[in-house]
Each structure stands twice: as structure tokens, then as C-alpha cells.
Simulated assay, not measured.
Amino acid sequence: MTLNRVDITYISPCLADPDKIRLKADLGSNIGDIFPFVNAEIERANYNPGLPSLSLQKEFRTITLYEEKMTMIKAENSTDAMQVIEWLKDIINDIYARKDEIEPDHTASDPPRPLEIFKLLPKTNCSKCGELTCLAFAVQLLEYEQDLENCPKLKEKDYADARETLKAMLPQ
């Protein structure tokens, strides 16, 4: 199994950042068998064996792989998306070529819960992020519909520790 082609089937403005795009694509082959190996090799990959799916980050972009499809959010434009897709193909094919040397990780990632995120937020309900409450912002962070950068309070010195903890917890 190698990932040779990825055909983009849908592009639209990103909901989290309207200056960026989101997309859907067909992978041209079933890559579900490689997910446990990618989960073992890519730090902060989020594996869901029940679906199955695997989410990972490329800088600020979030990529979710399904057995025969993928989605990407926060790509700069279609050229950027294609460069990320080429990077992804290289990663998948490299891991597949080395799979006999890799101990697969079949454990599901346990994403944080909204209240865990909320506890680290300023809890001012200022709405400057575009959400009515900090709890709504926490939920949207987990749904990939918001970004930490949208909370101005988190940029303040007093919230530096909380911001770093959130960055580590969230696949942003």
C-alpha cells in the first residue's frame, strides 16, 4: 500500500479562519492499515481506531485522514494545500516502507474535554473571540472551529502558562 494520488473534491473558505481554505479529498486507496504506524511515529497524532481516523498537524493546518478520504482545514490556498498533500504522501509512504521496523500504536488518543479547556481560559465571557462565552470558545476549539489566537486575553503575560498548556493539549 502506498499513497500515490490525492484528488481534491471540495474546497471552501475555512470556518475557523475565512482567509484560509478547507478541503476534502479522495485518497485513491485504503490507507487505514497504516494508521497505527503513523500514530506511533507522528507526535501528537490523534488516532481513533473505532472510526477509523487519524488527525495530525502540519504547522497551523489540521489534517484528518480516513481510510479512503481526508480533510484539511486552515490551508493558505490551493497551492499550499497541494504542498501539504505532497508532504503527507511522503510521510505516509515513508512510514509504510519502514513499517516492519515500527511498533504500531493501536491506542486511541483521548482528546481533552471542553471543561478541561474551559478551566484554562480567562473566563471573562468578553466575546472578543467571536463566541458568546468562554465555554462556547472551548467547545469550538475542540471542534476545530476556533483558534487560540482568537482569544486576546490568552496573549497577555498573565495567561502565558495557560496558553502553553492549551497549545500542548489542543491539536492546533
Rank of each mutant, 00 (worst) to 15 (best):
A81S: 01
L142G: 13
K99L: 00
D158A: 12
L120Q: 01
F118M: 01
I73W: 04
K89D: 00
D110L: 13
C134H: 07
E164L: 14
F60G: 10
C126H: 14
M169R: 02
D90K: 15
I31K: 10
E149G: 04
T79F: 01
S53T: 13
I34R: 04
D105I: 08
L148Y: 04
D19E: 11
P112E: 03
A16T: 10
W87Q: 07
E101I: 09
R113V: 09
T62E: 11
S109E: 08
L142A: 08
P18Q: 01
Y96N: 09
N46I: 15
K20T: 07
P18K: 12
N4V: 02
P18W: 06
Y47N: 10
D80Q: 03
L27F: 01
I92C: 02
P152W: 08
A40C: 02
A162Y: 11
A162E: 13
L65Q: 05
T133W: 07
T124P: 00
R61K: 15
P171F: 12
L65F: 13
E143G: 11
K157L: 02
F37N: 10
T107A: 12
T133E: 06
F37R: 10
L15S: 11
Y159P: 01
D110I: 14
R44S: 13
E149N: 09
D33M: 13
S55H: 12
T133S: 12
E67M: 11
Q140E: 12
P52V: 14
L142M: 13
L142W: 03
P111K: 10
L120F: 06
K58S: 05
E116I: 02
N93M: 01
D33Y: 15
K155L: 03
P104I: 08
L166F: 07
K69L: 09
N77Q: 00
H106E: 03
Y159V: 08
E67Y: 12
A136H: 10
S29G: 03
N48F: 15
E76Q: 09
I63P: 05
Y144W: 13
